[in-house]
Lab assay of single mutants.
Amino acid sequence: NLYFQGLKYMVPGARVTRGLDWKWRDQDGSPQGEGTVTGELHNGWIDVTWDAGGSNSYRMGAEGKFDLKLAP
């Protein structure tokens, strides 16, 4: 699974964008943008601060869902 392989790169400072299971509307800005991981992966959740200004926790394994992917 590509998403599980990418988890080791989901570290503080990593750049991310919305992924396969995104369901959080425009939390990442409008139009959709990139963000920066600000915390360690914990119980399948990870913290992100978006360039647009907001921050929140997103699923990276929790509930079998992956809200994020590494930015290109």
Rank of each mutant, 00 (worst) to 15 (best):
R18G: 03
G6N: 13
T49P: 00
K23T: 09
V16R: 03
P72Y: 13
W24R: 03
K69D: 10
N56R: 07
V37E: 01
D67S: 04
L68Y: 01
D26T: 07
L41M: 11
N43V: 06
D28P: 06
L2I: 14
H42K: 12
E40A: 14
L2Q: 15
G61P: 01
N56Y: 15
E34D: 08
Y9L: 10
G53Q: 02
R59Y: 03
L20K: 12
G6C: 15
A14D: 08
Y58F: 02
A52N: 11
A14R: 07
Y9H: 12
S55E: 09
S30V: 15
T17A: 10
S30C: 15
H42L: 12
E63T: 05
E63W: 09
M10K: 06
L70I: 10
L2T: 14
K69Q: 13
N1M: 11
V16F: 01
T17W: 06
P31C: 12
S30A: 11
N43A: 10
D67P: 01
G39T: 11
K65H: 06
Q32V: 08
L7W: 11
K23S: 10
N1H: 14
G39W: 03
R15N: 02
G64T: 05
W45Q: 01
T17G: 07
S55D: 09
G29L: 04
A62F: 13
I46S: 01
W45R: 03
A71P: 04
W24Q: 04
G19A: 06
F66Y: 13
T36E: 06
R18K: 06
Y9V: 08
P72W: 13
D51I: 03
W50T: 00
G13W: 05
G39V: 04
A14F: 05
G44C: 04
K8G: 10
G13H: 04
R15D: 03
T36A: 04
Y9C: 15
W22R: 02
N43D: 12
S30E: 10
Q27S: 06
T36K: 04
V11P: 06
D26V: 06
E34T: 12
M60T: 01
D67G: 00
N43S: 10
D21C: 07
M60Y: 10
G39Y: 03
E40I: 13
H42T: 13
D21K: 03
S55V: 11
W24I: 05
D47K: 15
E63S: 08
G54R: 08
S30G: 15
G61K: 02
E34H: 13
N1E: 14
V37G: 00
A14T: 10
G54P: 07
A71R: 08
A52P: 01
L7A: 10
L41C: 09
T49M: 11
Q32R: 13
A71N: 07
F4Y: 15
G53Y: 03
D67F: 03
D26E: 11
M60A: 06
W24T: 04
Y58T: 01
L20E: 12
E34R: 13
T38M: 11
R59F: 02
G13V: 03
L70A: 08
R59W: 02
Q5A: 13
Y3P: 13
R59H: 02
D47I: 14
W24E: 07
P12M: 13
S57Y: 10
K65E: 04
P31Y: 08
G19Q: 05
V11K: 11
G64R: 07
R25M: 15
G29K: 04
E40W: 14
Y9P: 07
